[in-house]
Structure formats: structure tokens, C-alpha cells
Write a protein that binds this DNA or RNA. Structure first.
Lengths: 189, 189
DNA sequence: GTCTATACCGAGATAGAC
DNA sequence: GTCTATCTCGGTATAGAC
């Protein structure tokens, strides 16, 4: 529970703690006081690093995007696009417990901030468009120039759907079932 | 904008207005003052009908469930289970504009209240389990006793996924694409 | 049953000492 | 750069007149 990795800079600690708490309880329901306390930073000091709560929110979104990009770079080393898509889907299965407990880290944040309006809503859209864009590249590279967009949308919808339902039902097995389907589907392409 | 159907009782008006505003802006972000104002009920009077905001939230969930049941009863008149599933999927397509603008009325509410904890979280789970249960019945009646659960989960995941992504991307065409897929899928069963 | 006034609390945000 | 004390506002909820 929020030891807050004291070796990191305070700014980084605030972002990481904020990301964690926003994932667990939602961004709007977590107060700056909650974040500051868990990160071992005095409340008033938060405003030295972020002018507003919204600004901290943007940093959290950036951090999530950075996490996705790290993962993507790792997976991009695989030789074929089909292997890459396979690896992504397999990674979903590996995170099934987390997905069932707290939903999709990207999807939950995005759908929550979407309603918030303002700069945050705009920024949070990238949490969806970026992964979908990457999917699209893979399908295109796999020879599906025509319907790359549709295929990527389908894959991403399936991902978001299984995460949302597995979370609501608190059932990791649901992820397993849907992932199996996706693997078969990718195999037939 | 919230004329609040003055012919209805105040309690009903509060519930319907609350449901509408919760759908548009989220339940937590809408204050009791917002709801009361839009429903043309004085703020203090809300507490005559509902002891707490959470209690109003429960009523909103009940109302959504009632809406689903109405729709289900209507569709249950169709003769074959496959026709019923088809009709459901077609109704999704008919609501594509709404889905792109505000997401799924069931899914949005459920995923938001899930994090809230307490009695609301428990009650809101029915927003997912009830439709899925109905799907399962249909698949079973269509002769898929073995995998009725898996099939219903798949259909519901697809539904929730397309709604979430279409909402984030604000793109109704995404619903059309995914619905086409689902129709083909049901046809092959 | 209905409505007004208000208590109360927690949130985001600021001032200013160190 | 760091932290304490505090301001302000908006939200839920209550008291009590009519």
C-alpha cells in the first residue's frame, strides 16, 4: 500500500501513485490529499509540481501512454506482424487477474476522463487511438491493406469488451475464453 | 433540456432526470442540486423521497433495469431464439448515434458504480448479469446447451466493447462494422 | 407533504514562513 | 525548493417553518 518508492523524485512519485490510485478507485474519487499521503509528499507541496489537479491527470495519462509504448517497443522486435498481434493477445491473457480486479488500465482511465471534458478529455483519447493505430499498422503489414482499420477496430473492441465485462463480473476466466477466440481469429487471417 | 415531464410524480421525475444526467455526465459528477433543478423540484425536497444520494442511485439502476426488461419482453414475442438475438443486435445498430455520443447506458453506469463500492456496486452488477443471462437463455434454446455461457459472454463483450470504443472515438460507423460481424457470426451458429 | 435556510464537511487551491 | 496553515467553494445532508 503506497510506500511510494522513495528513491524516485517526488514528481515521479506523485504521478505513479496518482496512476495507481486512479486505476483502483477512479481519478475523480481520489483526492490530491490521498495521492500526496500515499506518495509521502506533504499535501501543499503537490502544487509546486502541478498547478492543478487536471495537470496531474494529464501527467498520469502520459505515463500510461509511455507504459504502452515501452511494451510496444519490446513487442516490435518480433519478426512478423502476425507474431506481434499474437504476442499482444497473449499478454492480455497474462494480465487476466488484474483485468478482472480493476479493468483495463487504458480503457478505464479513458472512459472516465472522456466525460470530464476539457484538455484532459482530449488527451485521454490517445489512450485508445494509439493502440488502435498500432494494431492497424500490424494488419497492414500483414497484407490487409483494405480492411486494416476494420480489423484493428475489431481487435480493440474485443479487448475493451472483455476487460469491461471481466471486471464487472470479477471473472478472469472470461478473459481466457475471449482470448482463445481472438487467437483463432488471428490465425485464420 | 430537462423540462422534467411535469405530469409525472416528483419521485419519478427525480429518477428519470437523474438517469439522464448520470448518463450524460456521470453519476458522481452530477450533484443533487443539478438533478433537482432539472426536474423542477426544490433541492431540499429531494430528501423527502430519497434518504441519500446513493439511494437515488439505486433507483436509477432499477429504472435502467426496468427499461431493459421492457425491451426484452417486447423482443421475447419473436418465435425463434435466433430471431431474438438478431433483433437485439439490430437494435444496437439502431442506437449507434446514441452509443457514439454517450456510450452504453448499461455499461457506463455499471462500470462507474462498480468502483463506488457499497450497496450501489452490488446492485449495478445486475446491469450486466441480467442481459447476459437473457442471452444465455437464447443460446440454450437455440440448441447450444454446452457453450451457452461462452457464447453469451462473447456477444455481451462484443456489445460492450463496440459501445466503449465507438464512444471514445465518437464514431457510429464503428458500431455498424461490428454489428455486421455479429450478424454473420449469429448466422453461422 | 412541501419548501427555505442553513449546518457541515471535504475538496481544490493559495499565502507565506522557513 | 519545501512544508504548514488557511481560504473558499460546492457538495451532501438536516432542521424546522409552512
Amino acid at each position: 500500500m503506497g510506500i511510494g518508492k522513495p528513491h524516485l523524485g517526488k514528481r515521479t512519485r506523485l504521478i505513479e501513485t496518482g496512476m495507481m490510485l486512479a486505476y483502483r478507485n477512479g481519478f475523480r474519487e481520489t483526492s490530491l490529499a490521498d495521492i500526496a499521503q500515499a506518495a509521502h509528499v506533504p499535501v501543499g507541496n503537490v502544487y509546486y509540481y502541478f498547478k492543478t489537479k487536471e495537470e496531474l491527470g494529464e501527467a498520469v495519462v502520459e505515463r500510461r501512454l509511455a507504459q504502452f509504448r515501452e511494451f510496444r517497443e519490446e513487442i516490435d522486435r518480433l519478426s512478423s506482424p502476425k507474431e506481434r498481434l499474437f504476442a499482444f493477445v497473449e499478454s492480455i491473457q497474462g494480465k487476466r487477474e488484474q483485468l478482472a480486479r480493476g479493468g483495463c488500465p487504458l480503457g478505464g482511465l479513458c472512459s472516465e476522463l472522456q466525460k470530464e471534458g476539457g484538455a484532459l478529455a482530449k488527451k485521454s483519447a490517445a489512450l485508445f487511438t494509439e493502440p488502435m493505430g498500432w494494431f492497424e499498422e500490424q494488419f497492414r503489414a500483414a497484407g490487409h491493406e483494405e480492411d486494416a482499420r476494420e480489423l484493428s477496430a475489431h481487435l480493440f473492441c474485443a479487448y475493451q469488451g472483455m476487460a469491461a465485462v471481466a471486471h464487472a463480473a470479477n471473472d478472469p476466466d472470461l478473459v481466457v475464453m475471449e482470448v482463445k477466440r481472438l487467437k483463432d481469429w488471428i490465425g485464420t487471417l
